[in-house]
Design a protein around this nucleic acid. Structure first.
Lengths: 212, 212
DNA sequence: CGGAACCTAACGATCGTTCGGTTTTTTATG
DNA sequence: CATAAAAAACCGAACGATCGTTAGGTTCCG
């Protein structure tokens, strides 16, 4: 199975692409099988030959998103694996921007899931978030603490806040269609976020007066 | 218009309540006028006597959410008006938790709007966010800076990050149905967030060694 | 009496899904 | 390699249900 199945695999991929576009831009119930069939150049009957029902298409899309997010070759995942937080904050922001940019419709799909399926699928993502971060960063943070390189803030909370915040910020920028919602360019906003996470709001004795 | 209109006003309010519940739990297109009519004890014909069409109900709900958010008596808005940031961070977190708790279905409505209406209505909320915060906090922050009570982080960015982050955090907790998604109680998580915003991740000279 | 509130029934369209059948591809056999 | 049988891919029409909205009428109330 390789050559001979190529055409049908291409068709199925096309169906999924079309369905992703439609589901993410108008919702699950508002998207009809006829619309998916027409836009992907298949007949309705054939569509049901490849998928048992409409929800199966949706489920498969959610699964595809999962696979994309867990891909070890993803820049963000390589970054998590390297565990250089907080030294890599700028790279983390850039990697998350990349993820959001490359998965805009999938991210919207999550909100479709929250609304129309009660958040069945999103839960798995958030549920064990703290465990996954602990697995990736726990050891490093214990070492950093021994070296006195960590203040009185829990770095595990900090890395979760940072990554979730970047993700949310770019989601609003790119998926909700509200660019510059912080009144400045994303690049500048990210710089400010990183400074806040690193330095905190309270002045430090070693601060310059006003910091240009 | 007061007494004699009471019954119909009660009906309309009931319609809006029912529609809010349905729209926020299954989406706009997935909710039928018949369902709204049945659950609010009206006939379909009478429903169309009070609203020109389905979208008008949705629009009215968005409008009601706006009014609730802008209510000057809202604890969060009184807090913004007092402009005591960052001294009031704990109260701000509590006030935002209160807002999210009291408006859970309305918040979900925003995501319905993003998906099914291309985010027509959410934009107005985010669009002038930075201006509104500048109007509320600009003067205070300039004074604080003169007093040397502000470090090298832009406090206007900080107050926007803080409030948006609290809002997002409680939205995931209460609207997406993923409680404890930081692996700790909301109270404890909020404490950590506040410490992060105030102190930053980098150790300070005046830090205690490990800070229990 | 007049208008607002309210009702049921119906219209035309569209929905998810199924059905019966044709075409194309794969596989097995001589 | 030719070819028949089996399997997979594919199609448009149709089914029963439901959709948003309207029509035409009755009831309530000042």
């Amino acid at each position: 199975m390789g050559r001979q199945a190529e055409k049908s695999e291409a068709s199925i991929a096309s169906v999924l692409d079309v369905a992703l576009e439609l589901f993410s831009s108008q919702g699950f119930r508002a998207t009809s099988m006829r619309e998916i069939a027409a836009k992907s150049g298949l007949s309705v009957g054939n569509l049901y030959h490849h998928f048992p029902n409409k929800e199966a298409i949706f489920r498969q899309l959610i699964e595809r998103y999962w696979e994309r997010l867990l891909d070890p070759d993803l820049r963000l995942n390589r970054l998590f694996a390297e565990a250089r937080f907080p030294d890599d904050l700028p790279e983390m922001a850039a990697a998350i921007e990349e993820v959001v940019e490359a998965n805009t419709p999938y991210i919207l799909l999550i909100y479709v899931d929250v609304i129309e399926f009660g958040g069945e699928h999103i839960r798995a993502f958030y549920d064990n978030m703290s465990e996954r971060f602990e697995a990736a960063y726990g050891e490093r943070f214990r070492r950093l603490r021994e070296e006195g390189r960590i203040g009185d803030v829990d770095p595990l909370v900090a890395v979760m806040v940072a990554s979730r915040w970047f993700f949310y910020f770019f989601t609003v920028e790119k998926c909700f269609g509200v660019p510059m919602h912080f009144g400045m360019s994303p690049r500048q906003a990210v710089d400010e976020f990183i400074r806040l996470i690193r330095r905190g709001l309270e002045p430090r004795p070693d601060d310059a007066t006003g910091a240009v």
